[in-house]
Structure formats: C-alpha cells, structure tokens
C-alpha cells in the first residue's frame, strides 16, 4: 500500500491552478498558431494574433489567460493501492482555495445557486474514479461559463443516423454564435445516460486537440462547423472551431444520449501524477 498524504494532494492541486490558468495548453496554442497562419479574414487574423499574444503575456507575467478562471473541475484517477492519509475531498478543495488565492485568480463560485451571495473560490466540482495501480492522477479543468452556458443534451432515438447527430452538434455551435469566444473546441459525449453523456462531453475536452490528425467522425464535424463562417470572435473566417473531440460509451438499446460541451479558445487544463 502506497501512502499519499492529503497535504501532498493539496499542494499538487494548488500548483495545477497556476499551471492551468497561466499557461495555455500546448496543443491549443499550436492549433491557434496554425489558424493564425491560415486565416484569410483580416480582422479575424488580427484577433487570433491578439489571442496568441495574450497567451504569452499570461505565461510571462503570471496573469490569468482569461478573467473567468472558471468553475474548477477536478478529475481524479485514484489507484486502488493508494492509502490516502487524510480527507481527499477536503484536500482537493483546500488546494483549489489556496491556489486560486495565491495566484490572484477569480472568486467565481456562489454556494447557493439561488440567493447567489458572496462569491468564493470553492467548492470545486470533483470527479473521482478508482483505477488500478498505486498512483493518483489529477487533472484540473478551469471551465469558463460563457461557453458552459452553451451546453446541449439530446436523447435521440436509437435508430438515428449519424448525420442527424452531426446536425445537432453543428446547431449547438451555430446557436453559440460569437457569444462563447470562438474559435471553439467542441466536446461531444455519445452514449451512456443523460448525465453520463454530459460527463463524457466534458472529458472529451481534456483530450489533445489535434488540429491535423483526427478521426473521421471528428474531422467531418470539424469541416461542417467551420463552414458556418462564424469565425474567430464571430468576425467571420475559416476558424469557427479548432477541433472536435468525441468520447463514446456503451448505452441502452432504447436510446442514444448525445451531449455537447463547448469550450472557448482558452481551453485550460493541467495534469499531474503523484
């Protein structure tokens, strides 16, 4: 049995807060640079230049990439041979609280969703998965809410064609228009249950955004979305979307849940393994 202390987990999570919010993911930055090179719309190109400059300023000066430092979502893969000394969930929240305070991020969390008083830094949303082994893998996703507000769920009939699913995803992006900071990264969850497909769509955002080599389903969707001509910041152009990631799961013979979770161009996540 490997022992990992709660303090060690808190420290790791605190570090992730800085990493996710100050340093744009390499895969996302590469896609943005490629888009900048290829974008023909002059205003859109200038904007993409600003997005890339913003990533450099944030990283160099340790200022948050975006003022919406998100609702911190933590994905924990805990090895079943690990003994955690202390309270795991408390340790994670302590790490988020310390990190968000230490790095001057934003207190965007309201405890009571109805009375909405006194925004704070926690609680984070924590997903815990038990896996084989004796390690803990922690991923922090700082999910902005401008794009979270554009999420979609549809319970399709099992006889649906893939083109109908595609249409649903494209419509979700079309309705987001310029509001949620395009160029987007689109996460799609297919299968499972209503709630689980939402979780899959979110998890899809954690996979590398491969703007060159992707699966056919994903590349078909990407092409179709980029025909919408929403473009960076809604200014028109080739790049409404940087990449589409799909996660699938087994489901029931009677249904086909599909969820869409859109990310703004500032897709921020960071990973650590203990």
């Amino acid at each position: 049995m490997r022992v990992i202390s709660a303090d060690k987990i808190s420290k790791a999570v605190s570090d992730l807060c800085a990493k996710a919010n100050f340093s744009l993911r390499k895969d996302v930055l590469e896609c943005l640079k490629a888009a900048y090179k290829k974008e023909a719309n002059k205003k859109a190109k200038k904007f993409l230049g600003a997005v890339i400059a913003n990533a450099y300023v944030a990283n160099k000066e340790r200022i948050a990439i975006c003022q919406d430092t998100g609702l911190p979502i933590l994905f924990l893969e805990v090895g079943q041979d690990v003994l955690i000394k202390g309270d795991l969930k408390k340790a994670v929240n302590k790490g988020v609280d310390q990190g968000y305070k230490k790095y001057f991020l934003r207190n965007s969390i309201v405890h009571d969703p109805v009375d909405r008083k006194e925004p704070g830094f926690i609680p984070a949303l924590i997903h815990i998965d038990l896996v084989k082994g004796s390690k803990i893998k922690i991923t922090l996703l700082a999910k902005g809410f401008g794009c979270e507000n554009k999420s979609r769920l549809k319970m399709f009939n099992p006889t649906v064609s893939f083109s109908q699913i595609k249409q649903f995803v494209v419509e979700a992006v079309k309705d987001s228009g310029a509001d949620a900071c395009p160029p987007y990264v689109v996460g799609v969850g297919i299968g499972g249950t209503a709630d689980y497909s939402g979780y899959l769509a979110k998890k899809a955002l954690l996979k590398p955004v491969a703007c060159t080599k992707i699966r056919k389903l994903e590349s078909d969707l990407l092409k179709e979305i980029n025909r919408l001509n929403i473009g960076p910041m809604g200014l028109g152009g080739k790049f409404t979307c940087l990449g589409v990631n799909i996660e699938t799961a087994p489901t029931h013979i009677a249904g086909l849940p599909v969820s869409v979770n859109i990310s703004c161009h500032a897709l921020r996540s960071a990973v650590i393994e203990l």
């Binding site: 600003a50 944030a58 200022i63 310029a178 900071c181 161009h265």
Partner: peptide
C-alpha cells in the same frame, strides 16, 4: 463595442 474576447491578460495592459 466588442472587446477582444478571452484576452484578459493582454487587455489588462
């Protein structure tokens, strides 16, 4: 007016 969306670090300047 539209400000550069998702460029909070840059705009702080």
């Amino acid at each position: 007016f539209l400000a550069y969306a998702g460029c909070g670090a840059l705009l702080s300047k």
